[in-house]
Amino acid sequence: MKTKMLLAGVTAGVMFAGSVLASTLDDVRARGKLNCIINTGLAGFAAPDDKGNWTGFDVDFCRAVAAATLGDADKVNYTTATGKTRFTKLAAGEGELLSRNTTWTFSRDVDLSQTFIGVNYYDGQGFMVPKALGVKSAKGLDGASVCIQTGTTTELNLAEFFAGNNIKYNPVPIETNAEAQELYKAGRCDVYTTDASGLYATMMSFDNPSDHMVLPEIVSKEPLGPVVRHGDDQWADIVAWVLRAMMAGEEKGITSKNVKELAAKDNKDKEINRLLGKDPLQGLSKLGLSPDWAVNVISQVGNYQESFEKHLFPLTIKRGMNALYRDGGLHYIPPIK
């Protein structure tokens, strides 16, 4: 009898956990802080500075969402998560937003009941070689020994790419990124392959970064983006439009420096007026945001370009695919009207 009751209790608990009790925005406002799940440390994307403040490209996005919803980019509680725990932490409600260089895939989107709200960084698997090797393209890597992390998608991508191009290679299996760095530095492998952003970060950790280069071939698609839970469309829309507002800022030339000025005057470009709350933006009240939401985002965090240049340029990462469509990149946002 007791066991049955206990089971019933547990079941009820599980069912409760699956349902949404109040809107996420209300929860965040009531708490006065946004709970954001970030990486435990990835160069350029999330790392604490000497004073203990988290900074980085992914951290900036948490700050942007806090600025839009709470009016203050500093009102964020950061919860760190590893690759294995990030989805359960989000599902369990330890955070409202997962901003942790997460690749958007079918099964993560559908099977894990999450909503990917867009792409804030297009990554892909690349190859790093010492310049002394004299290789200019991944197709010239015939017979090279390649350091590769076992049990990851990178292993499969590598096999597919080399088989497709009829290139022989010699895999050197390794467990962790740190181990790979040591082996590569010691010359045990000619090539190191992982996500391009990771390659740049690894390269910067060397004493002479300029002795190495990342080859132009990118052999996999890794669209990284922020994630929220299924079931609260209002919250998903807020997060999605915060990302788009940052990109719109770059597109329209709105920066953290001139945003206050542009918000105060009547601009010829009516889209700027609507974004910055000068002209009414139909439906904004449904999101539950105040008219100055985008002003808060851009003035406190900056537009997409500013965030990118601040955190990723020091790693010598170029805009490439992450430029706006008009500059030959992939970021193309819907119009704000």
Binding site: T40, G41, L42, A46, T79, T80, T85, R86, A201
Partner: peptide, 19 residues
């Protein structure tokens, strides 16, 4: 550290992630 708590080793790794 594997569940994302930052013990000294985690703090060390985070420090290394700072450019």
């Amino acid at each position: 550290v594997v569940i994302g708590l930052l013990d000294p080793l985690g703090i060390g790794r985070a420090a290394l992630a700072d450019t």
